[in-house]
Structures are given as C-alpha cells and as structure tokens.
Design a protein around this nucleic acid. Structure first.
Lengths: 152, 152
DNA sequence: CTATTTAGTCAGTTAATCTGACTAAATTGT
DNA sequence: ACAATTTAGTCAGATTAACTGACTAAATAG
C-alpha cells in the first residue's frame, strides 16, 4: 500500500490496487443482487482458498495468512448459514474437512460469473489482445512470487 | 473476491490480488526494516490518498471509501505520532487541512523506494517489455474505472 | 511408550469500521 | 437579509475482524 496518489506518476501498487478493489466491489454488489445477502467481506477469503475436495481449517488459515482461530470463526459462520459442511477427517481424528455445500457451490459459481462479466466488459473496451497481455504478465509475476514463497 | 482457487484456471481477480498482497506485505516489512514501526496496515490508506498540498478528512474518507469518522480516527493516530499535521482551512472555518509532516514525507518516500525496488526486481526477471505491457494495460483498465465513476 | 508436535476450540482482548446524534459554519432560495 | 438546508467534523457507542494465550485430544518422533 501507500504506493501513490494522483500527483506523482501512479506506481505499480496503485495500478494493481485500483482494479482489484473495483472487482471486489462489483462482486460484492453482484452477489447481493443475486440474493446472497448474508455474507460479509471477510468471508470471501474462505471461498478464495477452499479446495474442491475440502480443506482443513489450519490449511485455510495458512493460505489466507490469518490465525486458525480467526479462520475457525469465519467457517463457523458460513457453516451455520449452509455454505459449508464439516466432515470428520478419516485419516486424522483431530481434524475435520471443510467443504462447500451445494449452496456454497452455487455462491462460488455466481461469483465466477460476475467476475467473468467484468473481464468481458473490460476486454471489449481495451481489446482482448491487451487483456491477454495483462493476464500473461500477471501470471509471470505470480510465478515469481510462488517461487519465492516455496524457497522459504 | 472469491475469484479462484488453484483447481480452476486462475481468474482475473486472483491475478490482481496475489501480486497486490505480495506488494503490501513487502512494503510493510520494508518500512518496518527502515524504522517505521508504529504504523498499522489500516493507516496506509491515508498515505495512498493524501494530496501533497493537503486534503480534508471528508475528501480522504471518500477516496478511501470509508466513513469520515473512521478516517478521522486514522488521521488522529498519525497526527499524534507526527506523520501528519492539521491546519485550519482559511477558506472554510468548519474544515481543516491534513498534510504530511516531514516525517510523513520521509515515510512516503521510503514506501515508494521499497515499491520501486520490487518493480525493478520483478522487471529484471520477467523482462521490462512485459512489465511495461502490464502497466499500460492496467492503466487502460483504470481509465475505464475512472470514467465509470465520474459518470455516477 | 514418553515427549513433542499438530488440529482445533474456548475465552478474552485489541483493532477497524460502522451508525446515530450532535455543533458550527457555509450555502441556497427567496 | 435570513430561514432552511447542506456540509465538515466530532463524540459516543456498537459491531465486525482479527489477535493472543491457555487448553484438550490425537498423531508423530525419539
């Protein structure tokens, strides 16, 4: 953060932040419009990181860079409202596996739909070539980040 | 948010989120290393939006998409620690103008330095051509977002 | 087969942000 | 000119988000 304000040339941080926050706001509004009204921004992080075959609380917490206590709270909230299900892990009786319920899958699908619409809208205006260049470039950067993380 | 997890192809939201969060973490660590240890992540938003000639609380709140009460608290914290100064606005006796102190300028400069280092590091690995393509593309998207905002 | 690590919960705390009610100054409409 | 409305900011209190510390029970390592 703290990367810029309009007086200086915009720096890379702001260039990423502005479209990212626009996307977050649009997904939030889009989901609300589609009837998912009981989610708060903090819950999104669970859907971002959950694995289709289910994930453990600890794993989700680590991926989301928060404590397992905090993640536990988010998962409890979403489980209580029917977005997630907990199953005991047969391999490890201390652990449980959290997975999307049908409702959770529906939410996920709706979110992806909204996001695809945004991408289509932007692409049609700036051109698909340029959008592809952005995506390729960002994926290259992500590769660097992931390499750095695995080295640690 | 909620744009992806590794099982599906990564969507645009995640492509922006991952490098953005990496940048935030690096700036946070970099500033800490440079001796700015009394800032919390929430405060960064003030520096992102403050104008070199000073800004009003209301203006900062609007740009940061939060209430003026919340922004007021952030500004109070930073003023108490010497990063910001408040002056009465001569044009409007209800308002005050918040601006960076010398210490605040130093912080801003340090943050920009860290960010430039990140950009240089990434560019040298993916190539400056590709980095420029990303930046051009993101700026085109930002232009769309800004147009949409002004239409509202 | 004891010692340590790991998965998760419970309880309490701090940080971040919000809503509502308010004051005083500025602006608008007549 | 001046009443009505809007705007800038604060104060007080509530809610949400995330943290630390202490704990239990199961798994793993020596």
């Amino acid at each position: 953060m703290m990367e810029s304000n309009q007086e200086y040339p915009r720096m890379l941080g702001a260039m990423l932040r502005i479209p990212f926050q626009a996307i977050v706001a649009k997904i939030d509004a889009g989901l609300r419009a589609k009837g998912f009204t009981d989610l708060r921004p903090a819950h999104f992080v669970v859907f971002q990181h959950i694995h289709p075959e289910g994930s453990r609380i600890t794993e989700l917490a680590e991926r989301a860079q928060m404590t397992k206590q905090s993640m536990s709270e988010l998962v409890n909230y979403l489980e209580a409202r029917g977005y997630l299900e907990r199953q005991p892990d047969p391999k490890d009786r201390r652990a449980s596996i959290v997975r999307l319920s049908n409702k959770g899958e529906a939410l996920n699908h709706a979110a992806r739909e909204v996001l695809q619409d945004i991408e289509n809208e932007w692409s049609s205006q700036i051109g698909w070539t340029q959008m592809n260049a952005i995506k390729e470039g960002l994926n290259a950067i992500i590769k660097l980040i992931e390499e750095e993380n695995t080295r640690k």
